[in-house]
Computed example of a mutant assay.
Amino acid sequence: MWLPDRRTFLISLAALAGCGFTPVYGPQGGGGQLLNAVALPEPDRRYTYDFNARFEERLGRASGPYMLNRSIDVTSNGLGSLADGQTTRYQLTGRATYSLGFVGSEEVLISGQTDAFTGYSATGSTAATQAAERDARRRLMVILADQVIDRLLLDADMLPQ
């Protein structure tokens, strides 16, 4: 039977401390200044609403001091088909381009883009296919929002104090 060894644990902690590891929400981490501090533009489509909902779920709803400008593009491609040409599977590919700056300022503090994809089956009824597509779009927005948040947190130490 394997028993944890306290020495291994302490050596692991020392190795992490020696490599410059800093928790993003820790006292020296930059992630704390993004909590409840990033405002988002109003959603204009259902999938941008889903993006905003996930973003606010993780970082909180705020009216500033930061503003995240984002552009989201989603494309759909048929992947599988039957002998009669009917498409049975679709892939949704999304790209989120973002820039973080101060509210009311044109200065960009952090910017980047991220890509993700998801898929859904179109073999059921029309209602089932539409529900599957809505769910795939929602999952795609959750993935993109998580990736944008992760990149913002990684670059948060570059933000002015």
Rank of each mutant, 00 (worst) to 15 (best):
G20A: 04
F21R: 10
F21Q: 08
F21K: 10
F21P: 07
P23Q: 11
V24M: 12
V24H: 12
G26K: 09
P27N: 14
P27S: 15
P27W: 14
G29P: 08
G31D: 03
Q33T: 12
L34C: 12
L34G: 04
N36W: 07
A39Y: 11
L40E: 06
E42P: 11
E42M: 10
P43H: 12
P43C: 07
D44Y: 03
R45W: 07
R46I: 13
Y47E: 14
T48F: 06
T48K: 04
Y49H: 12
Y49E: 13
D50R: 09
D50K: 07
D50S: 13
F51L: 11
F51R: 01
N52A: 15
R54G: 00
R54Y: 04
F55M: 15
E57L: 08
E57C: 07
A62D: 11
A62V: 09
S63V: 10
G64V: 12
G64S: 12
Y66P: 06
L68M: 10
L68R: 10
L68F: 09
N69L: 04
I72R: 01
V74Q: 05
T75W: 03
T75Y: 04
S76W: 08
N77M: 14
G78Y: 05
G78P: 03
L79S: 07
L82Y: 06
L82T: 14
Q86E: 07
Q86M: 06
T87K: 08
T87Q: 07
R89F: 02
Y90N: 06
Q91G: 03
Q91H: 02
Q91R: 13
L92W: 00
T93N: 05
G94I: 00
G94C: 01
R95S: 01
R95N: 02
A96T: 00
A96Q: 00
T97V: 12
Y98L: 05
L100A: 05
G101S: 04
G101P: 02
F102K: 07
F102Y: 08
V103K: 10
V103P: 05
V103H: 04
G104H: 02
S105V: 00
S105E: 10
E106P: 00
E106R: 02
E107S: 06
E107K: 08
E107C: 00
V108E: 06
Q113E: 09
Q113H: 08
D115M: 07
